[in-house]
């Protein structure tokens, strides 16, 4: 099995719901807490396993706003694991999930340096490394109803922009989406072979841009005033 996520950049609206659900679930999950330094103060700073960035792609009028959520890609070739001196970081044979054993980590930060995707953040209170667990404590929990054995971020996403599944199974929804929508890996040139796949935005009809009349602001205002006075 090769478990991971598909993220649809066409439909993601950048609501940060996945990041919030992730923090909520995982702060009391197997690797919790996800602590914050100075949470209500001037300069809060804490561990998050998922972050959303927003880009403008292309130039006006042919530009598009793209929201890009990023969590651990559960890379096939995870250098974050090989650099770890304590053996705290490991990749599971059976499903490819990359995890950090909180009881072994010494907080040297080296794995976060080795990760190209900014997926690892040091917990400011515990001094150990935190990262996305692919909600390993949900997806195998047989006490949950079948439909809820999914990562918290996937369940919460209001636009269904996150899909969880097995990339080794060619008929799974994630494999099908990646195939049909031309799924992409981020920074493939580094050779980490990330599992999480991003679906590029669909090409849509260009919206007609608002045309200005070419008059100056002063003329426009004058025209309005004249109109009002004429009445």
């Amino acid at each position: 099995m090769k478990l991971g996520l598909v993220v649809d950049l066409d439909t993601c609206v950048g609501c940060h719901g996945c990041a919030t659900a992730c923090k909520q679930w995982n702060t009391s999950g197997t690797i919790g807490p996800l602590s914050d330094k100075d949470p209500y103060g001037r300069d809060p700073n804490g561990a998050w396993l998922n972050r959303i960035r927003t880009y403008e792609v292309g130039d006006t009028p042919n530009s598009k706003t793209v929201n890009m959520p990023m969590s651990c890609m559960h890379c096939d070739n995870a250098a974050c694991v090989t650099v770890c001196p304590t053996g705290a970081s490991y990749k599971r044979e059976e499903d490819g999930i990359v995890l950090v054993d909180q009881d072994k980590c010494m907080g040297c930060n080296l794995c976060s340096w080795a990760c190209p995707y900014g997926a690892r953040e040091l917990d400011p209170h515990q001094g150990t490394m935190k990262k996305c667990t692919l909600c390993v404590d949900r997806i195998y929990d047989e006490r949950l109803p079948k439909g809820e054995r999914q990562p918290a971020c996937v369940l919460t996403c209001p636009t269904k922009s996150r899909v969880f599944g097995d990339f080794d199974d060619p008929d799974s929804e994630v494999s099908r989406l990646a195939r049909e929508r031309g799924g992409k890996q981020l920074m493939p040139e580094l050779g980490y072979n990330p599992v999480n796949t991003y679906l590029p935005p669909r090409n849509k009809k260009q919206q007609a841009a608002y045309e200005t009349s070419g008059r100056s602001v002063k003329d426009t205002v004058k025209q309005w005033v004249n109109k009002v006075i004429a009445r």
Binding site: H16, A19, D43, P44, N45, A47, W48, R51, I52, R53, T54, Y55, E56, V57, G58, D59, T65, V66, M68, N109, S112, W113, G118, E121, L122, P124, K184, Q185, L186, M187, P188, E189, Y198, P200
Partner: peptide, 28 residues
Amino acid sequence: HTATGFTQASVRLLDQGHTANSFLNDEF
């Protein structure tokens, strides 16, 4: 471009997603 996968258009950051600082900003 290779980082975001948009290799055929200009890419600009609009918002990094957090108003305060983060571990990533401090470290890198």
